[in-house]
């Protein structure tokens, strides 16, 4: 546990010392949202839900892809002596999750500012947002490990994760569209169960398979 906290602190310190990376990411999000505002002006609620998640996907790829890309070979060797693979992947997941919650809040603020906020069931929307963010975080973090070992090609993260992200996004967007109007909470039950089980499965798979990426 202590090791995980240390790793998260290290990630945050690197992020803080290299603020321009986060800054460029946020600017990228601003530009995309402004582009949507510029080309749509009036966005109907269903397109709002879809576009919001598409912007989220591409901002999160950029945010997360760097998490393993920035690790040099020497630092991997240093990690071998200090941590177990489980500690490293959990720390990376936790840090990326915090980062993604920040990015998604920022994207949401931008969307409300430029193209409006058509959601009426705020509580369940927050749940959908959190579930979706966890989904994308786990998927992209895991693919970033593979892409980092394959030669630090950021485009590879996108290519590897998008085929899996398409069906995931179908679930998330479906959930988000239901929150456009206030409804009986019962209709969310399948979405919540589905998202939770997919997230759990992905975390378990990632945790197990990360042990195999560890050894050189």
């Amino acid at each position: 546990m202590q090791a995980i906290i240390t790793l998260i602190k290290k990630e945050a310190t690197i992020e803080w010392r290299n603020r321009s990376v986060l800054g460029s990411l946020l600017l990228y999000t601003v530009l995309t949202v402004f582009l949507i505002f510029f080309s749509f002006r009036n966005l109907d609620p269903l397109s709002w839900a879809t576009l919001f998640w598409i912007v989220m996907i591409f901002s999160s790829v950029d945010a997360i892809a760097k998490s393993f890309m920035q690790e040099s070979q020497e630092r991997w060797f240093y990690y071998y002596t200090l941590f177990t693979p489980g500690q490293l992947i959990l720390a990376k997941l936790a840090y990326n999750l915090v980062l993604m919650v920040l990015v998604s809040t920022f994207t949401l603020l931008l969307f409300s500012l430029f193209v409006g906020f058509p959601i009426h069931d705020i509580g369940f929307f927050a749940l959908a947002l959190l579930g979706g963010v966890v989904c994308l975080t786990v998927l992209f973090t895991f693919m970033s490990v593979i892409a980092a070992k394959a030669g630090k090609n950021t485009a590879l993260v996108t290519i590897l994760s998008l085929p899996i992200a398409i069906p995931l996004l179908a679930v998330i967007i479906n959930f988000t569209k239901k929150t456009l109007v206030v409804q009986n909470a019962v209709i969310y039950s399948t979405d919540i169960v589905l998202l939770c089980s997919i997230n759990l499965l992905m975390i378990i798979m990632g945790y197990i398979l990360f042990q195999f990426t560890w050894k050189e």
């Binding site: 070992k149 499965l201 195999f212």
Partner: peptide, 28 residues
């Protein structure tokens, strides 16, 4: 060796996710 290992890891992850997703997602 690296290629073989990471291809295997990707294959396992994607096969499981793919099969689960196509059988689970109602829209599918």
């Amino acid at each position: 060796d690296k290629r073989a290992r990471f291809a295997a890891i990707y294959n396992v992850f994607c096969y499981v996710m793919f099969v689960v997703l196509i059988f689970v997602i109602p829209r599918m």
